[in-house]
Every structure is written in structure tokens, then in C-alpha cells.
Amino acid sequence: MNHPLAEGFFRMEKLPHIWCPGCGHGIIMASIARAIDKLGLDKDKVCIVSGIGCSSRAPGYMDFNTLHTTHGRALAFATGVKLANPELEVIVIAGDGDLSAIGGNHLIHAARRNIGLTTICFNNNIYGMTGGQYSPTTPTSEKGTTAPYGNIDKPFDITQLAIGAGATYAAKTTAYHVPQMDKLMEAAIAHKGFSLVEAISICPTYYGRKNKKGSAVDMMNFLKDSFIDHKVAEKLPPEKKEGKFLIGEFLNKVEPEYTEQYDKIIAQLKK
């Protein structure tokens, strides 16, 4: 017998995937597939687009229309796909480096336009694929191969960045909080307009080793103990929230969607 999800939604001949033991990316990839299943989307109407990185290998395993593009540019390709065929459900999978370093400009403009794409960021706080260079989400003073004495940069909060740029749906979750992640994925995919889910992943191989974070289980325990839903946090006394990171749905609003506005212009000119 095979895993029910693997059988229906993944390219069985490509599994097992090549990610390291305990890499959080597999947990997030499965959550996306469960959300698509739960929403009952037509598999042929789903298009999954990625750039380059460990995370960006996900579409290679997923049995939908898939597009593996160049580093940082997934959103640019996805914008083209969505404009050409607005009825497709276009989902972008991107690493924190892919999305917020080289691809940062595409992120803010896709959000600003409120184009109907769903972006799932697999945020492991490092460049996994190329061997552990620090990324724009590496916390200050943590280490990477390019920051052997500790990172002096201040990290981006990708969720807040998307909100600031004009996204209409934004949420954050972690590879530990799977039931929450499933719900947020579903809401983000169903959302009309630009939606982003920042899923905190774990990279035991590079981020973990460089920063002495222990095993994959230790890193999952860190996620479990350090992240709380912001709605739960609201009701807690200050001392219980100290040092915690907030997760959950941060924004969900309705604004005109880009491809619809574009189609309106075309209709007007045809009159």
C-alpha cells in the first residue's frame, strides 16, 4: 500500500525526494497538496511554479502543471502564466533566498499589483542548496558560510514585507504546526488576489549544523516552543509571550485583482 496523498498528487517515480533527512520542506510540500485536495481543485487547472533552491525542487515531485524556472524569477514567470490564463490556480513555491534576496523585487511588485497568485515561502533562514550562505531572513548574529563570525544584518519579516507591499492575504506558520498550516494554505489558495504563506522550515544540514541547533527533532521542538498564534498571544500575560514569534493569519481583505482589472480594460477597448 502507498501513502494516499503520494499516490494521487505526486509523481511516484520521482519519490523518495532528495531532501536531507528531517528537512522541513517535505512537510510543507505535503500540506500544499492536502490543501489542493481539500479544496477539490481540478488538477489540470493548477499550475505550480518555482525558481531555484532546495525548496524549488518541490514542483518536480508534484503531479500538476509545473514550471521550474530561474533563481528568484518564479513570480515573474507565474505572472505571465496567470495573465495568459487567469482561470488557472497558480501557486509559487520559493525559498527565503529565492523570494526575498534575488527575487525581492518581483515579490513586492506582485504584491503591489494584487495579482491572483498564491506564494508559499519555504523559509529555512538560509541558502540550503548552495551550502549555507546567510539569507535576508537569517537572524542577526546567527552564522552562515558567508557569516562565519555571525550575521550583522537585520532580517526581513517576509509576511510583513508582503503586507507592506500590498498583498491582500498574508499568513505565517511553521513545519511543526501542521494542522494550522493546512488551514492557512487552504485559505491562501482560495483567496482572490495576491496571497502569501510564509512557512518556517528547518534545514538541519546547514542552518542547524552551522548554528549548533541539534537534530531535526531539536529544531522541530524549537518551532513548537517558540511560535504561538497571535490570537492566542493576545490573551496571554506579557511574560508568557516574551521571546516568542507570532504565527497565524495576519491579513485577509478584498481588493480588485490584477487580471480582472486587465480584462476590464480589454473589454472597454473592444466596445
Binding site: H3, P4, F10, L15, P16, W19, I27, V178
Partner: peptide
Amino acid sequence: GMCQMRCPDFAIFLGGKE
């Protein structure tokens, strides 16, 4: 089903008894 949900590798899951 928590093991199934958190396994990164589709290696453990609930299924029908054979």
C-alpha cells in the same frame, strides 16, 4: 495521524488494514 502529517518523506501513514 500526526506522524503522517509531520513525516517529511511520505514514509508513515494511516491506511486500511490489509
